[in-house]
Amino acid sequence: MIRHLVLFKLDEGVERDDPRVERGVEAFRALGDQIPELRFWELGWNISDRAIAQDFAINSAVDDRDALGRYLEHPAHQAGVALWREFATWVVVDYEY
């Protein structure tokens, strides 16, 4: 299995209630039901106020590297990524477990 972790940081001046952010969250929330390669799918807003904290996270899992590639290239995933590019940056970690 491969764990796919993504941590998002909203751009300066962008708040959670920004309509663009709300559309982005909903697009990613729906991926769990749209992409068959996903074996595990959760996401949520950070609750910590630490200065080093990120704002939003996705925690997911797929069977193998081929499944990860199919997930990353899936049109629904690509559409969600395009939304998030408008208001955030992110870091990714993919590891086998």
Rank of each mutant, 00 (worst) to 15 (best):
V62R: 03
G32K: 06
L83G: 03
M1Y: 09
D55C: 04
R16T: 06
K9M: 01
H4S: 11
E12M: 02
S48N: 08
R16N: 12
G32V: 09
T89K: 08
A57R: 11
A76D: 06
I52Q: 11
W84R: 07
Q54E: 13
S60H: 05
E26N: 14
Q54K: 15
D66C: 02
V81C: 01
F8E: 07
V91Y: 12
A51E: 13
R39H: 11
E22Q: 15
E15H: 11
V91K: 10
E26L: 09
K9L: 00
A76F: 01
E73H: 07
L72R: 15
G13M: 09
A53K: 08
Y95G: 06
M1L: 05
G13N: 14
V91E: 14
D17I: 02
H77G: 10
G13D: 15
R20M: 05
R23E: 07
L68M: 14
H74R: 05
G32R: 02
F40G: 13
D55Q: 06
E73Q: 12
P36N: 03
E12A: 14
E73P: 00
V21F: 04
D55M: 01
R23V: 04
A27V: 01
L7A: 10
E37Y: 04
A82H: 03
G32Y: 06
Y71D: 08
R29V: 02
I52D: 10
D17P: 03
E22D: 04
Q34Y: 03
P19K: 12
D49H: 12
G13K: 05
G80Q: 06
D55H: 14
F40N: 15
